[in-house]
Computed example of a mutant assay.
Amino acid sequence: MTTIFAYITAALAEISGCFAFWAWLRLGKSVWWLVPGGFSLALFAWALTWVDSSAAGRAYAAYGGVYIAASLAWLWVVEGVRPDRWDVLGVGICLIGAAIILAAPRA
């Protein structure tokens, strides 16, 4: 449960932090958007340290699948663009890959 919470927290923090930079550079928002964006990106990095993994790279690789799913949720909820069947298929494949990376038995 802690890993799922860590990945969800990291995904929301990373996407919102990156969106703050996007809003400033691409949408003409105030430079002050970068302040909460920076804090959000710091929370993202910290949240990934909560994952119980012996190797950071493995924790980051598995997180990639969660990030892709969260990005498409952001696309739908925040940007109002509904993911299509190819998006859904791709997310499913990525989440299966993330689960294999995290749950595989290791010596």
Rank of each mutant, 00 (worst) to 15 (best):
L72R: 04
L25I: 09
Y63K: 00
W24C: 11
I68L: 14
A47F: 15
G80W: 08
W46E: 02
A55H: 08
W50P: 01
C94P: 09
A62Q: 01
A73Y: 00
E14P: 11
L34K: 08
C94D: 09
V51F: 06
G97W: 10
G57V: 00
L89N: 01
Y60R: 00
W22D: 13
K29Y: 09
A42V: 08
A70G: 05
W24I: 13
S71A: 11
Y63T: 03
W86G: 00
Y67G: 07
P36S: 01
E79H: 03
L75Y: 01
A69H: 06
L43G: 13
S54N: 07
L72V: 09
G57W: 01
Y60D: 07
W74M: 12
A61W: 10
A69C: 09
A62W: 02
V35A: 15
A45E: 06
I93T: 05
K29C: 14
W32E: 15
V91D: 06
L27H: 05
G64H: 03
I15Q: 09
R26Y: 14
K29I: 05
S30Q: 07
T49H: 08
A70D: 12
R26E: 14
Y63G: 03
A56F: 07
A20R: 00
W24V: 13
L12Y: 09
A10I: 08
A10E: 11
A42M: 13
V78E: 11
G97T: 03
A62V: 04
L75G: 10
E14D: 11
L48E: 13
V66P: 11
W33C: 15
A13M: 04
D87F: 04
G37R: 01
V88P: 05
G17E: 09
G90E: 12
C18G: 15
V88C: 08
E79F: 00
A42S: 12
G28M: 03
F44L: 01
A11Q: 04
D84A: 07
L95F: 05
G97P: 04
W76E: 11
R82D: 12
L89D: 08
L27P: 15
G37W: 00
R82M: 15
A62S: 12
E79C: 02
R26V: 10
E14T: 02
E79S: 05
R82G: 13
W22G: 10
L48R: 06
V77L: 12
G28E: 09
V77G: 09
A55L: 08
L95R: 07
L41A: 07
A104D: 11
S53H: 01
T49K: 06
S16N: 08
W86C: 01
R58C: 09
A11V: 07
V31Q: 09
T49G: 05
L25V: 05
P83T: 11
V51S: 02
T49V: 07
V35K: 00
L25A: 12
L41I: 10
L72G: 03
G37F: 02
I68W: 02
I100R: 05
I100K: 02
G80A: 11
V88T: 06
L48Y: 15
S53G: 00
G28A: 02
S54H: 04
P83E: 11
A59P: 03
D87A: 05
G65Q: 07
V31K: 03
A103F: 15
V66H: 06
A103N: 12
D84V: 11
L102Q: 15
E14M: 02
S16L: 10
W74F: 15
D87P: 01
T49S: 10
I68R: 00
T49E: 08
F19M: 12
